[in-house]
């Protein structure tokens, strides 16, 4: 509420214009991906390009599903994202419980390590992590990708869950402890139900991060059987002719799951993201 005299017509016009500019900037590229994916091969390369498909077609989607390995990539992405999500949330919950509810030697160091690992950029790690996954014998496999994705999802989930668990009053679990429950029981039966909304948000984040990841998928998988949508998409783009219709259709499909998640839980995600970073 920085601007005060908001009844002025000039202010209103400015406001509407500014919103329009912001929305065009944010939405135009997404719109263009969708529109391109619904055009025929010929129309895609027409000059000038058409703002709306003259001949509306689902042909590009047909090619993507019928003639490429994209369905396999889609399935791989699902498996990797779900596997990563489950592992990251479980590991993160256990660790966040220890950090927020227990006093132990080295707690400060562990907390610091979690944040540092969250901040460590994947682009600095890709060559050594490749060599390490190769040593472990999990290179070029979905398992290997899940392990690689844990390097950023686990610290992030732990960090966010620390925030959530701290908002849960300790009287609750202390009461349960007095009643004779052990720590694991307290965590599962008392804290998890109370922190469930937080857990869901964290899970959605982990899923989104794993689904969207590209660099590790590009380098750690080289056979078709282990490729995910992101690395598969780049394979589709390179080297062939007139591929943009298919690529844009594949892009639209790749956006869909995260878009659904986003639309369903937008408010919580934004709160979680900002809180996870600052609070």
């Amino acid at each position: 509420m920085i601007v005060g005299r908001r009844s002025r017509p000039l202010y209103r016009v400015g406001l509407v214009l500014a919103i329009a500019v912001l929305l065009i900037w944010s939405l135009a590229p997404i719109y263009w991906i969708l529109v391109t994916s619904l055009k025929t091969e010929k129309e895609i390369y027409a000059y000038p390009p058409t703002a709306w498909p003259e001949t509306f077609t689902l042909m590009q989607y047909g090619i993507v599903f019928g003639r490429t390995r994209f369905p396999l990539f889609l399935r791989n992405s699902m498996m990797v994202a779900i596997g990563t999500t489950i592992a990251a949330v479980v590991i993160g919950t256990l660790a966040a419980y220890a950090i927020t509810r227990m006093r132990f030697v080295g707690r400060a160091i562990v907390a610091r390590a979690i944040v540092a690992a969250y901040l460590l950029p994947p682009a600095l790690l890709f060559i050594p992590l490749f060599l390490v996954l190769q040593q472990f014998g999990v290179i070029d496999s979905l398992t290997g990708l899940v392990l690689a994705y844990l390097t950023f999802t686990v610290p992030f989930c732990t960090w966010m869950l620390i925030g959530y668990l701290r908002t849960v009053p300790t009287d609750l679990d202390e009461a349960a402890r007095i009643d004779g429950a052990n720590r694991m029981q307290v965590l599962i039966h008392v804290l998890v139900p109370v922190a469930a909304p937080g857990l869901v948000v964290v899970a959605l984040f982990a899923f989104t991060q794993a689904w969207n990841e590209f660099l590790y998928a590009l380098i750690f998988t080289y056979s078709e059987a282990a490729r995910t949508i992101t690395s598969g998409l780049v394979g589709m783009m390179m080297g062939d002719v007139f591929i943009w219709g298919q690529v844009m259709a594949a892009c639209a499909i790749a956006i869909a799951p995260v878009l659904v998640i986003y639309l369903a839980a937008q408010k919580y995600l934004v709160e979680g993201l900002t809180a996870g970073s600052v609070k």
């Binding site: 380098i219 080289y222 394979g235 390179m238």
Partner: peptide
């Protein structure tokens, strides 16, 4: 038996990864 089509632009990188991992085609 599986046939994998690799674009020319990325075949060096993919072969490098596969040979390094000891599991080339």
């Amino acid at each position: 038996a599986e046939y994998v089509v690799v674009p020319a632009n990325v075949i060096n990188d993919r072969l490098a990864a596969a040979f390094q991992a000891g599991a080339p085609p």
